[in-house]
Design a protein around this nucleic acid. Structure first.
Ligand SMILES: NC(=O)c1ccc[n+]([C@@H]2O[C@H](COP(=O)([O-])OP(=O)(O)OC[C@H]3O[C@@H](n4cnc5c(N)ncnc54)[C@H](O)[C@@H]3O)[C@@H](O)[C@H]2O)c1
Ligand SMILES: NC(=O)c1ccc[n+]([C@@H]2O[C@H](COP(=O)([O-])OP(=O)(O)OC[C@H]3O[C@@H](n4cnc5c(N)ncnc54)[C@H](O)[C@@H]3O)[C@@H](O)[C@H]2O)c1
Lengths: 207, 207
DNA sequence: TGGAAATTGTGATTTAATTAACAATATTTT
DNA sequence: AAAATATTGTTAATTAAATCACAATTTCCA
C-alpha cells in the first residue's frame, strides 16, 4: 500500500505546519484550519489523513501531536537514511548548509567533488571527499540518497556512478534529465522550467 | 486558451533538449526520440506539440529549429519579463549567479536584502538594494517576477510587500506556504518535502 | 432534553492528465 | 507500382486526482 505521490508531499508539508502549531501550544486542529495553512481544501486534508488511517476525536479536530507521530510513522518509518551531496558548488553548498541538522531522520553525511581545492573541506560539519572514492564511501556508510548538484555535463556520468554504487533515491537539480533504473526513485527539479512556467502564467493568466 | 501546467513545463524541457540537438547539428527529431530524452512517451510529446498547434512534415519528424521557435512563441511571447531575487543568502546568491544571462527573455535585474553588509554588493552584475526600496525599484523597472529566498519567518511579510508592489509571479523557495491574491501566479518549491518524498519512495517502492 | 451547528469520514461524481488505438500519410522496399 | 513500414495527429478510453455531497457523530446551547 503506497500512498499517492501528491499525498506524500502534502503530508510532509502538513507535518511542518503541525510542528509549528505544537510550538505555539495548539493541541488540536480542524481540517479546514490545516487546509487554510496550505493551498488546499478541508476535504483534501481529510482525504490525505484518511489514507494514512488516522482518525480524530470527532468534532474536536485532529490531535496535533498524534498526527505528527502518525505522519512520522509513514514518512520516517524504520531507520533514518543517509544522504550525500554530489558537487559542492554554489548550489551544493547552499543545500548542504541548509539541510544539515534539519530533519533528524535524513542525515547528510558526505559530500563529493572533483575539484581538489574543495576536497577535505568541511561544510557545516560534513566533509567533502574526492568523487573517485564515492562508491567506497557510499557503501561503507550505507548512503542511500544522493542530491546531484554537479554541472549539467557531468550529471550523466555521476549518476551512472551513483547507481553503480547502489544509491536508491536521487534528487536532481541539474537541468538534464537523468536516466536511472526503475528501482531507483528519481525526483527532478528544474529551476529554469519553473521560472519559465511562472513567466508563462504571468503573461497568460488562467481563468 | 492557456495550456495545461504540466504541458508548459514539458515544453520548456523539450526546448532545452532541442537547443542541444541543434548544436549537435540534428535538424529533425521524432516524437519517440524527444520522449526518450525525457521521462516520457511519444504520445505525450505529440499531444503536447498538438496543444501548441505545430505540425511536422509527415514521417520526417519535427523540424528542430521550427519547433524551438514555436515553443518560443508560446513561452517567450511578447516582451521579456524582469525578475528580482529577494534575500541574498546562500540560496539567493546561488540562484542569482546561476540565472544571470541564462534565459535571454527573463532578466534578473535587481536583488534585495535587509542586511546592510549586503546592500550595494553586486552579484554577477546585479546590484543588491535595501528591501525598503523594493516597491520603488520594482515599479521603476517594471519587475513582474520575484524569487523569494528570505528566511521562513520573513517570507509572509516580504510577500505582502511584493504583492503590494505589483509583482505578478512568484517563485517561493522558503518552506512556508505563501498567500497571494488569485491573479498572482505562485510556484512553491519545497526542498524538504522533496527530500522526504524521495526517502519515502526509497523505503516503499511503488509497483 | 431536544434541536441546531460543526465537523469528520467516505461513497459517488467530476475533472484533469495520461495512455491506447488507429486512420491518414509519407517513405522505403521489392 | 504494390506492399510493407514508420510516423504523425487525434478521437476515444483509462487512470489518477480532486471535489461534491451527505450520513454519522459530537458538542453547544436554549
Ligand atoms: N546555482 C543554482 O541556483 C542552480 C539552479 C538550478 C540548477 N542548477 C544546477 O545545479 C548544478 C550546480 O550548479 P552550481 O551553480 O552549484 O554550479 P557550480 O559550478 O558552482 O558547482 C558545480 C560543482 O560540481 C563540481 N563538479 C564538477 N564535476 C564534478 C564531478 N564529475 N563529480 C563531482 N563534482 C563535480 C565542481 O567542482 C563544482 O564544485 C548545475 O548542473 C546547474 O545547472 C544550479
Ligand atoms: N539554502 C538552501 O539550499 C535552501 C533550501 C531550501 C529552502 N531554503 C529556504 O530559502 C530561504 C533562504 O535560505 P538561505 O539558506 O539562503 O538562508 P540565508 O540565511 O543564507 O539567507 C537569507 C537572506 O535573506 C536576508 N533577509 C532576511 N530578512 C529579509 C527581509 N525581510 N527582506 C529581505 N531580505 C531578508 C538575510 O539577510 C539573508 O541574506 C529560507 O527560507 C530557507 O528555508 C533554502
Amino acid at each position: 500500500m503506497t500512498l499517492p505521490e501528491r499525498t506524500v508531499e502534502r503530508l510532509s508539508e502538513y507535518r511542518r505546519s503541525l510542528l509549528q502549531c505544537l510550538e505555539e501550544g495548539k493541541t488540536h486542529i480542524f481540517s479546514h484550519e490545516l487546509a487554510g495553512l496550505h493551498h488546499n481544501t478541508a476535504v483534501q486534508v481529510r482525504r490525505d489523513i484518511m489514507f494514512i488511517g488516522y482518525t480524530s476525536m470527532q468534532r474536536k479536530g485532529y490531535d496535533v501531536r498524534e498526527l505528527i507521530d502518525v505522519i512520522g510513522d509513514i514518512l520516517d518509518s524504520g531507520k533514518g537514511l543517509n544522504v550525500a551531496v554530489i558537487g559542492i558548488g554554489n548550489l551544493g553548498r547552499a543545500v548542504t548548509t541548509y539541510f544539515v541538522g534539519k530533519r533528524s531522520k535524513l542525515n547528510i553525511i558526505a559530500t563529493f567533488d572533483v575539484d581538489t581545492t574543495k576536497i577535505d573541506r568541511v561544510i557545516s560539519g560534513v566533509k567533502c571527499y574526492p568523487i573517485n572514492r564515492m562508491k567506497e564511501i557510499v557503501e561503507a556508510n550505507n548512503i542511500s540518497i544522493a542530491i546531484v548538484t554537479v554541472p549539467a555535463d557531468s550529471a550523466a556520468e555521476v549518476t551512472a556512478q551513483l547507481v553503480e554504487a547502489g544509491i536508491m533515491g536521487l534528487m536532481n537539480f541539474t537541468t538534464v534529465p537523468l536516466n536511472v533504473p526503475d528501482e531507483v526513485y528519481l525526483d527532478e527539479y528544474d529551476m529554469i522550467t519553473s521560472l519559465e512556467k511562472v513567466a508563462y502564467f504571468v503573461k497568460s493568466p488562467r481563468n
